[in-house]
């Protein structure tokens, strides 16, 4: 990366860290290495969404061609969202792909991801299973996303005992909790179908 790009990145990081609205916007970054190619992002789950109360971590990698190519950003906290892979955390967001512009910054990227958390776009999904549930069973989607927030993002909503009970049943059969949650979520919490899926 050139010096110009490095200077710019330093300024971008400062913009996020010292911005006075931080307490309101709920975005934060952490610099992981000196040449600023690896950065950790944090987004507080927006209020009035199933993600409220959670804290979501993101891996941000700055490419050589930055700022002409977008940063690569993915969730490292597991999240149940139509535009994020529930397996890998990969995000489907236009500005991280073909709508990237060199005038965008880390701040605008994090704010855009936060906005995506508020308004999913199920018609342009990253995770087709989540998107289908979002459109066909909105209530199940909501409680599943809340459950994930509680389990993986240190959320504060009361635990859904019904869901937890089914997770525990799979755990009793020797399934790891993370896998149990994932498979149950993908099967709309149908314990029989989840069991068949895992053991067949």
């Amino acid at each position: 990366m050139s010096n110009i790009a490095l200077n710019r990145l330093q300024r971008e990081c400062k913009e996020v860290v010292t911005n006075s609205e931080i307490s309101e916007t709920g975005i934060m970054i952490e610099i992981l290495n000196e040449n600023l190619t690896e950065i950790k992002g944090h987004i507080r789950g927006p209020p009035d969404t199933p993600y409220a109360g959670g804290m979501f971590d993101l891996d941000i990698k700055i490419p050589d061609q930055y700022p002409f190519s977008p940063p690569s950003v993915k969730f490292c906290t597991k999240i149940w969202h139509p535009n994020v892979s529930s397996q890998t955390g990969v995000i489907c967001l236009d500005i991280l792909k073909d709508q990237w512009a060199a005038s965008l910054t880390l701040r605008t990227v994090l704010l855009s991801i936060q906005a995506l958390m508020c308004s999913p776009e199920p018609k342009d999904p990253q995770d087709a299973v989540v998107a289908k549930q979002y459109m066909e069973k909105p209530q199940v989607f909501k409680s599943t996303a809340e459950f994930w927030t509680l389990k993986f993002a240190k959320g504060t909503v009361p635990v859904n005992t019904d869901y937890q009970g089914r997770v525990d049943k799979l755990k009793d059969m020797g399934v790891r909790e993370e896998e149990a949650i994932s498979v149950l979520s993908c099967n709309n919490w149908d314990l029989n179908r989840a069991t068949v899926y895992i053991f067949s």
């Binding site: 710019r8 005038s103 965008l104 910054t105």
Partner: peptide, 13 residues
């Protein structure tokens, strides 16, 4: 209305 410093960086360069 172009974003302030990210755009003027290119101009200054």
């Amino acid at each position: 209305g172009f974003p302030d410093w990210t755009c003027t960086d290119f101009c200054e360069f």
